[in-house]
């Protein structure tokens, strides 16, 4: 457990009337530091919020943005929604897979980049759209696709 988590937990709890509500925000905050939620992290969060471990485990496993396994520092989500598909997202995904030498759902062996499918990202006006560490990029054209891999990363 990192020393600052205690404080983060206090802050999350202070914001909501019930401790449970603090769970999602705290998981987000810790994950943004740790990149993923290990079993130990889940236990720590349970302790911090005085929630049963299985409860935290079960909740975390429900949401697709909580990662149970390590992911890359750069997480690329390619939207596979219908509007994006109509505008070439399949091709974009293939292109990135080729470039990175990995399949969708995987992380590069050096642990730098994870390539993930996203369901419709509610940015169909930017189709085909992607997110890099949850920051929108789009429309991604053949020419700009590679910027997904190299552009500045925010987290």
């Amino acid at each position: 457990m990192k020393p600052e988590w205690e404080l983060w937990a206090q802050e999350a709890k202070a914001e909501f009337p019930k401790a449970n509500s603090a769970l999602l925000p705290l998981l987000h905050r810790i994950q943004s530091q740790e990149h993923y939620l290990s079993e130990d992290t889940i236990r720590d969060v349970a302790v911090l919020l005085k929630l049963p471990v299985p409860y935290v485990e079960s909740v975390a496993s429900f949401y697709s943005l909580y990662y149970k396994n390590p992911v890359g520092k750069r997480i690329i989500h390619v939207c596979m929604g219908l509007s994006c598909a109509l505008n070439g997202s399949d091709e974009l995904m293939h292109h990135l897979e080729g470039k990175l030498g990995i399949q969708e759902g995987q992380t590069t062996p050096d642990g730098e980049v994870s390539l993930l499918e996203a369901e419709c990202l509610a940015a169909c006006n930017l189709a085909p759209v992607a997110q890099v560490n949850l920051r929108f990029v789009g429309p991604v054209t053949e020419d700009t696709a590679d910027q997904l891999l190299t552009g500045e990363v925010k987290s």
Binding site: E15, F16, K18, A19, N20, S21, A22, L23, L24, P25, L27, H28, S58, V59, F62, Y63, S64, L65, Y66, E119
Partner: peptide, 27 residues
């Protein structure tokens, strides 16, 4: 007013699942 962020689940748009999620549960 408090701003709460979900964590990736379309079903949480359904109002009762949303409330579950807002209470820190599975949606």
């Amino acid at each position: 007013i408090k701003v709460y962020r979900g964590a990736g689940a379309y079903i949480c748009g359904e109002e009762s699942a949303l409330l579950e999620s807002l209470e820190g549960k599975r949606g």
